[in-house]
Structures are given as structure tokens and as C-alpha cells.
Design a protein around this nucleic acid. Structure first.
Lengths: 337, 337
DNA sequence: AGTGTCTACTGAACCGGATAAGTGACGTGA
DNA sequence: TCACGTCACTTATCCGGTTCAGTAGACACT
């Protein structure tokens, strides 16, 4: 089956290719009557502009890219990325943009993917996730002048637009809440220590604990997997002065931590309160349901997509704060025994 | 920054554009010495062929598409798709293919996406998931002659290649195992009833229960969400002859079911045995860890990608069975009290 | 030397859109 | 009535690859 082209439309409408192009793109240069006739024919024969031809003649590729740098075993269970992708899609689909996905192993490979996409003209812009300190990807994106929106921060992206949520504020809220319940020994199981938002959270956690005069503010680094989250929990709970509350940097680790506590015969929340960062259905599924720092990840993604599309359109896009998490208390937090 | 083109390479090598194209694509028509010189220059200046130009001149777009038809709230927690995508990527990246993703609301919209992708020449082939009975997408793909691989089955795809796992065998194994433990009242919380693999499982479940002379073989349809899985479990457990074992069509519902059982004061596995279909880290995280029907979803995806790439290359691709689930016993199954 | 064959290339057409430049018809004002 | 401007188009060129039809030169064979 042959794909219809503007030449086919031109022939049927008795006009030239150029006229068809003007008509379909809403450009001046054709009468309103002709435009409507051409649009009608295009719809009738199911015309879709060849994206390659369009991209080749200087217009945009109508696609944006997302690289994900996480091992498969984390990806499969981590709800964050799928939520983000759902949010992207809502905005992109409305504008007729496609999303190109690539899973990579290291940030260095991510750079290679960016260079290739740029050279191939495959995407008009990219989403950048998992921002690190002195991130190696940033200078490359600047050099290539590839429109980008960094999801994470704040800071560290130079001239590249970013969207970030106020993680420091969120963790402060969580700690204050636990302290109000009467907790004095609060620990935290953090995410990958290289990631900028992990550092932001760690710093803010230390600051608020110090400000409130808490005994200690231990953050155990981890890698977002359930196994590591469970191991970290076990280490925290076998100590002499075991914490009465633990904040986890994602929901998967929090669920694992809950299982470890129960396995060790501790009652949640009586003996141990648990707070999860990011609220997925997972948190409501377990027993007791987990108190969580909730945010609308899909909306966060949609916001990022709007930013990126604006950047692709050549608009200057600033940094915005959006989707800051707020505490959703559930059954896993209570005053300590 | 200007993107290097084959014309740049041609100029520097002192040959024509055509020679460069032959050299870079491993075509005959240039001497080995010249080829190496051209390849060296291309690498030196960081050349990447413009994908639009390549696609426009009849070569492939070097991209394949995946549409996902699930609401965002399920997607974010459902580990299956991310596992599948990871598997796709491994194969696609090795061949330099990009993966284009689109999340849609209905199968009808999926058809529109296929038509658009085909018209835009944006992808060389597509993955089809969530096969239904008399699936409306199949005739469209045949009409467009768009290379495709259906993930699911068996059957119902006409001439289109498919990859399927032996769900009937897997559920039979699970039921036999439970019966061997002494269970006589086994229920099942199924997935979306429209999906072909749900029907396959339902039929096989009924067959094996009848063959083993079990009292009843109730399958409660559901939608893969934790809420629905929990509700279905509650309905099953308040009945007079409550089941002593429940098989769930995905892990999220199984975890929700576990929480409901515990909330109702039932001990797992003493009062109720639980089997989850698809084994994600989630199953090992909860307490007790869930007995699951495990399969390597990433490998399943990689296999599907190999099939699709072969189809894109014009090879005829048959139907293959792969990645059949096998039972991984854990703490959630035991003889009934 | 003449003929044929092969290799290693060149030149040009082509893919399907976007777009700048050109053209003819028509209306308008002096 | 003629010059001029505007509108509604057409024509031609371009984007950057792929590919086909040529062609020059080397070499072998008679």
C-alpha cells in the first residue's frame, strides 16, 4: 500500500505541491476556499506528512528524547519513570510529538546517545533526569545547543532550563511531623548518593535535625532497590540506639524496610515509624499503609514536557519549581512507644 | 554548531558523496584503502548519518514503535512494561534502532497511532501488546503491511508474527502444586477479561480444576490495580466456603490481596495461600514473600525485539513460544490448616 | 593494437516535504 | 489607460542521504 504524499493531494486538487504545503501548514499563500478543499482531500485519503521529509527540509523532527540510566531490575519496579513518561505523553501527544526512549548503563553512554541523536537529527530536544553534581552531560548539551529540560535540581545546569521540586522543604516537613509526634531518633535511608537531589535531601535532613536539636541525623546511602533498603534497615535496627523512625528515599525501599521491621518483631508504627518518599499505589497496598511524601509525578512530567516544547520552539525557558511533595499521613507513623 | 554531513567527509577525503555512502555502509564500490580512510575521517569529525535523510531515501527509519494502552495509575506500578522495555532496548540499541513510545487510552487510538506512524514513516515496525480476541488492530496492521510482532497469544494474529508464553501450562503447574499441598478450594483473581491471555488462563484454570475434581474454579475478573485486587480478595474471603488459596494475575493484586487477608486476621500461608503471576522484586519484599510464577520478562522482550528486527529486514517470522513462567515457591504457600 | 572485463569511482536523479522567488490575473488610483 | 500593488498561486531549489547509470583506467588475453 502506497503512502499518500502531498503530490497526490496536489494532483487531486489540481494545484501544485507548494500550494498544498501552504494549505496544510496554515501558511498564507492560498485562498480559504482552496485551503479547505485541500484539507478535505488530505483527510479523505488519510494523509500524514512524512516525518523524514519534513525533518529534512529544516522543520523539526517532532520528537523528543528521554534517556534512562538505571539498571533494568530497578526500572521494572520503580514507579517514578513510568509516571513521568505518562505525564510527558499527555503533552507531547497533544502537539503531535513522539517520545524516543533509550535505556543506557552509564552517564557517559547517555552523552553518546545525545550526540548521536543530535547528529541524526532524530530529536528536537531531550529530557535529562537523575542530575548529578558537576554533571558531565550538561556541557555536552550546551555545546550541541540541543534544547533540554533537566528534571531535578535546583542549580547545576547553567543555561539549561530545569524543573525541580522543593525536596528540602518536603523532608523538613516530614522531620518536623515526626518530631511533633515525639520522635527524637530519626534515621534516613537515602537514594544513590551521586544524584543531586539525594544530596539536597541529605543536607536538608541534617540541617533540620540539627535545628531541632535531635541526637543524630544518620543517612545511610542506598541504591533504591528493595534489597539494599532492607539491608540498610537491618543495620539501623540492630544498633544500640535504634531509631524510632526512618525516612526512605523511595517507596520500594520503604516497603522493604517495613518487611524487615516486621521480620525482626518490631511493630509498625508502635516501635518504628516509616515515611516513604514518593507515593505510589504500593504504599497503600501494604499493611499498615505507609505515610508518604506524595507528589503528582505525571503532572510534574507534563509540566516538564511543556517546558521542553517551549524550548524547542526557541523560547527561553527559565527554571521552575513544581510538584513539591507534601506529607500524606497514613498508618505507618505514630508517637513512639 | 554545524552537523557534519557526508558532503563534508567527501570533501575532506577528496571523493564523491556516493563513494562515502558506499564506504560507510559496507557496500561494494570502493577500495578497502579508501573505505578505511573515509571511515577514519567520519569517526574523527563525529559523523552520524541524518536519520531523516536516510529514511527519506528509502532506507529504514531505524526506529520501532511501542504503544501502551493502560491508564497511568496502573502503568506506574505495573513492572511488566518497564521490564519489557528494558529487554527491547538491549537488542535495539545493539542494532542502532530507536524505540518510539506512545501511551494511549483505547485500542482505537492505538490504530490511529499506527496509521500515523506508518504515514509519517516514523517507524519500521511495531510491538503489539495486550492482544484481545478479534483484535481490531490486527487487520489494520495487515492492511498497512507494517512489520509487527505481537506479544501475546497464541493465535488470533493471522499472518503477523507473535511471541507467546505458555500461560496455560504455567497456571496448570500452579494449580497442581496447590492441590499437591492439599488445597481443594482454589480461587483466582484474573486480569482484564478482554485480554486474550486472561482468557487463556481462565480456560486453563477451569480445565485443570475440573480435571483434578476440585469443588469449584471461580475466577473473579479484575483490572490489575491493587484496589480492585484487594476488593476481589475481600469478596472471596467473606463467602461461606472461602478458598484456601488464591492465584492472582499480577503481583500488584497479589500484594494487595495479602494485605486484605492480614487485615481480616487470616494468617498467610496457614489460612490462605497466595500465588502471584509475574515475579517482580515486589514479591520478595513483602512478608511473607510471595510464591510466584516467574519469568524473565526482559529476555522475553529481547526475544520479541529480535523477531521484530528480523521482520523489518523482510524475513518471514513465525510464532515462537518463549519465556514461559515457572513456579518459584516462597513463603506464601503451604498446606491448608 | 584491439577488444573485453573488472575495479573504483563520479555524477545525477530521487525520496517528500518546506520555502524563496517568480508569474499572471485582477483591482485600484491617478 | 497605464503603472502599481496585492493576491493566489506555480516553479525551482534545497535538505542529506541512497542508488543507479556511466566512465576512466588498469589489466588480461588474443
Amino acid at each position: 500500500m502506497k503512502r499518500p504524499t502531498i503530490a497526490d493531494i496536489a494532483q487531486r486538487a489540481g494545484v501544485s505541491k507548494g500550494a498544498v504545503s501552504y494549505a496544510l501548514n496554515g501558511q498564507p499563500g492560498v485562498s480559504e476556499a482552496t485551503r479547505q478543499r485541500i484539507v478535505a482531500i488530505a483527510r479523505e485519503i488519510g494523509f500524514n506528512a512524512n516525518s523524514a521529509a519534513r525533518a529534512l527540509s529544516g522543520a523539526s523532527a517532532r520528537a523528543v528524547g528521554l534517556t534512562i540510566c538505571r539498571p533494568a531490575r530497578i526500572l521494572s519496579i520503580e514507579p517514578f519513570f513510568m509516571g513521568l513518561i505518562s505525564g510527558f505523553e499527555a503533552e507531547l501527544a497533544a502537539r503531535g510529538f513522539a517520545l524516543t526512549l533509550q535505556v543506557v548503563a552509564t552517564p557517559e553512554l547517555e552523552i553518546e546517545v545525545y550526540r548521536r541523536w543530535w547528529g541524526e537529527r532524530r530529536v528536537d530536544g531531550v529530557f535529562v533526569t537523575d542530575l548529578r553534581e558537576d554533571d558531565v552531560r550538561i556541557p555536552v548539551l550546551q555545546e550541541l545547543q540541543l534544547p533540554a529540560v533537566v528534571i531535578g535540581g535546583p542549580g547545576g545546569t547553567g543555561s539549561i532550563a530545569q524543573i525541580w521540586s522543593n525536596d528540602a522543604g518536603a523532608i523538613t516537613e516530614a522531620v518536623r511531623y515526626l518530631v511533633a509526634l515525639g520522635h527524637r531518633r530519626i534515621a534516613r535511608v537515602g537514594g544513590l548518593p551521586d544524584l543531586l537531589h539525594t544530596r539536597t535531601r541529605t543536607t536538608a535532613f541534617g540541617d533540620v535535625c540539627r535545628a531541632l536539636g535531635l541526637d543524630e541525623a544518620v543517612t545511610t546511602p542506598s541504591d533504591y532497590t528493595g534489597e539494599e533498603g532492607g539491608r540498610a534497615t537491618r543495620r539501623l535496627l540492630i544498633g544500640a540506639d535504634r531509631p524510632t523512625a526512618i525516612i526512605y528515599d523511595n517507596d520500594v525501599m520503604a516497603v522493604a524496610g517495613l518487611a524487615v521491621a516486621q521480620e525482626m518483631g518490631l511493630a509498625v508504627p508502635a516501635d518504628l515509624s516509616i515515611v516513604a518518599w514518593d507515593d505510589s499505589p504500593l504504599c497503600s497496598l501494604v499493611h499498615p499503609p505507609l505515610t508518604a511524601l506524595s507528589r503528582d509525578i505525571a503532572e510534574y512530567g507534563a509540566h516538564a514536557a511543556r517546558q521542553l516544547l517551549a524550548a524547542v520552539d526557541g523560547k527561553t525557558v527559565g527554571n521552575v519549581e513544581a510538584g513539591t511533595a507534601h506529607l500524606t499521613p497514613r498508618g505507618s507513623t505514630a508517637p513512639p512507644r
